[in-house]
Design a protein around this nucleic acid. Sequence first.
DNA 1: TCTGGGGTCCTAGGACCC
DNA 2: TCTGGGGTCCTAGGACCC
Length: 424
Amino acid sequence: MIGLVDGNNFYVSCERVFNRKLLGKPVAVLSNNDGCCVAMSPEFKALGIPRGTPYFQLKHREKTDGLVFLSSNYELYGDLSRRVQEVLRTEVVDVEQYSIDEAFVYPPSWAEKDLLSFGRRLRQKVYRWVGIPCGVGFAPTKTLAKIANHIGKKRPDGVFVMPEDPTPVLADLPAGEVWGVGRRLPAKLRAERIHTALDLRDAPDDVLRSVGGVTLVRTAAELRGVSCNQDRAYDADPDSVSCSRCFGEPVTTRAGIVESVASFTAQAATKLRKHRLLASGCNVYVQVASPGMFESWNDIDSSFVGRTVVFPNPTDATNEMLEAVTPVAEALFVEGCRYRKAGVVFFGLEKAGSARQLDLFTETKPLESSKLYAAIDALNARYGKGTLVSASQGLATVEPSWKMRREHLSRRASTNWSELMTVR
DNA sequence: TCTGGGGTCCTAGGACCC
DNA sequence: TCTGGGGTCCTAGGACCC
């Protein structure tokens, strides 16, 4: 059996650990740039506000309905996530982190006899040691465990074990709520008269294949109790690394575009070095703010402009990247345009220190900058992001106009000495 | 009218996840 | 006026190889 432990409205629960005044209130955590609601407390959901609702549409209800909004504090959530995993590992040898708030656990054989009690034990321990409420679900496959977890969250004890015959459970569940079925497939499935998870499980493979490809065939197999989920480890090296942001306000200057792209490049480079990866190239893009942007997907797609740069040699050195990326950012800027967003995507990643593919026609430089960047990364980790930056990222003394909005940020109470809780 | 068989690599687009 | 960010996998089609 596989168990899934999943933090309830994780970001909100993290905020509540250090701010008890939030308990019982309708609280939402906002996306970057204070854009829209990404995590909501049960009290907030009860008001019927859907996930993804823009903050500006709800702002006025802070006063009238007592809604509380918080900017996302990833440093806090990441640290509490790590602590939850640690607690799980004290009970289960085999813990597989799936996302910031979820982990699959493979219970020891002695626990199989009474998974309900075991699930309650896990949940209580996480709650007492870290303060995060979780739901727990057990089932033979990951897809079924996801369903069991959703049911568990609605139970008073937070735990659900999938019965040996899950048929009645699946008959009660719309197909669109199955893990791996997104928002596009349900319409296509309905055309094949597949409405519930049970219909999905019992549909013939050739129909499933034509509707949703091999991925949907696998999902159905999982519902039948056949494991065929092959996902990568949470901490595995990524295939690509990116960094992008919507601007706090539209950018209209070349310097603004160049500085922001330089800054995203530097951040992504730090991420690469953390994984000890080199990038062989990068895609630089900007998005133009156009009126009526949110009325059609086509408008959004056509508003992106980008170019690909291939580095002379695979690299993790910020200065080498900036040398290649900056001219591209300059070239992408068109006078008179208002820009909404910019970003970089690094691809062609390879492990640093592994055999390198050399270029026959250009001089290959040794990776001499690695010590310099190890020192810079260490300083920035210790004294905060932006302590030491490249000049092309802009002067730190001037608040850049493209900076993110984060007006309701809570403190980093578990990772930063200066932001600890104080006892009076 | 009629033109093999077996591959690789790359890219773009679509779908999904949290 | 104001709507996030960071990923993955699969497929089809094109270009190329012998």
